[in-house]
């Protein structure tokens, strides 16, 4: 556990009007790990993700990703730096098919640099066509890994919930990230689906991905995370291995009255 941090959150603070959502939050995510971010509702977990992914600007502190300060960068540049995310409430593109959703994601990968001006279809239509065909092959391969290949042309939001979650993860992975932020990936899934998800995560990490995961499902967190950070009311109250965290008295106090399993 002595590898330098891939993602380093340093004294992060975020305020909304009178509410301090994040206060002096610091923790580090090491490469090749699955890192859990847990805490009661309203503790600032999703806000944390929103700041990391560039949707919000921090009011204080820094975020360093692989040696580069990314706090303050616009969201699209952060994605191109190698951080992808999924959303708590699913944000699939409603008017598009599963395949198209993933294709959009592919465009966000470092190799898929979008042309700023859409010259290609007019000036070099054959090249645009070839690039598109190539992307489709890649996208289908990705869908295949998630057993979604036969649903490629289905409107994304017409799928059952569990499959939609998979589509969103596939789409995020299409951007070829080094760090994947997952916001409650197991919410609404049954035990079987959760187990499949667990296996997927382990597989992905084995291939070199790093995962930072917000979750409420304690069994999943304790089972698959190598490191856990606990937030409560915008502050870090514990930061360590799952075993250390689960017996931490502050953590227990924060969750008092909550049955999470």
């Amino acid at each position: 556990m002595t590898a330098p941090a891939l993602l380093s959150i340093q004294s992060l603070t975020k305020r909304f009007g009178g509410v301090t959502a994040l206060q002096d939050v610091s923790f580090a995510v090491r490469p090749g790990t699955i890192h859990g971010l847990i805490g009661p509702n309203g503790s600032g977990k999703t806000t944390n993700f929103n700041v990391i992914s560039g949707m919000y600007r921090p009011d204080g502190g820094k975020i360093i990703f692989d040696g580069v300060t990314i706090s303050g960068m616009p969201a699209h540049r952060i994605t191109r730096s190698g951080i992808a995310r999924t959303f708590q409430n699913l944000r699939l593109f409603k008017t598009m098919s599963v395949l198209e959703n993933v294709l959009v994601g592919l465009g966000g990968s470092p190799r898929g640099r979008d042309t700023i001006f859409p010259w290609d279809p007019y000036l070099r239509p054959w090249r645009a066509h070839a690039a598109e065909a190539h992307m489709r092959t890649e996208a289908m391969a990705l869908l295949d890994r998630f057993q979604l290949a036969d649903l490629a042309d289905v409107p994304a939001t017409s799928l059952p919930y569990g499959k939609q979650r998979r589509v969103e993860i596939a789409r995020a992975l299409a951007t070829q990230p080094r760090l994947l932020l997952l916001d409650e990936p197991a919410a609404g899934l049954n035990a079987e689906e959760t187990r499949e998800l667990e296996e997927t995560f382990i597989r992905l990490v084995a291939e070199g991905l790093t995962i930072l995961m917000i979750e409420h499902d304690m069994r999943l967190v304790m089972g698959v995370c190598q490191w856990v950070t606990v937030l409560d009311q915008g502050k870090v109250i514990a930061d360590g291995t799952p075993e250390v965290v689960r017996s931490n008295e502050h953590v227990l106090a924060a969750y008092l009255g909550r049955e999470d399993d």
Binding site: A75, F87, G107
Partner: peptide, 8 residues
């Protein structure tokens, strides 16, 4: 979501 997919 579009921004999150790298779209400027």
């Amino acid at each position: 979501a579009a921004r999150a997919m790298g779209i400027n």
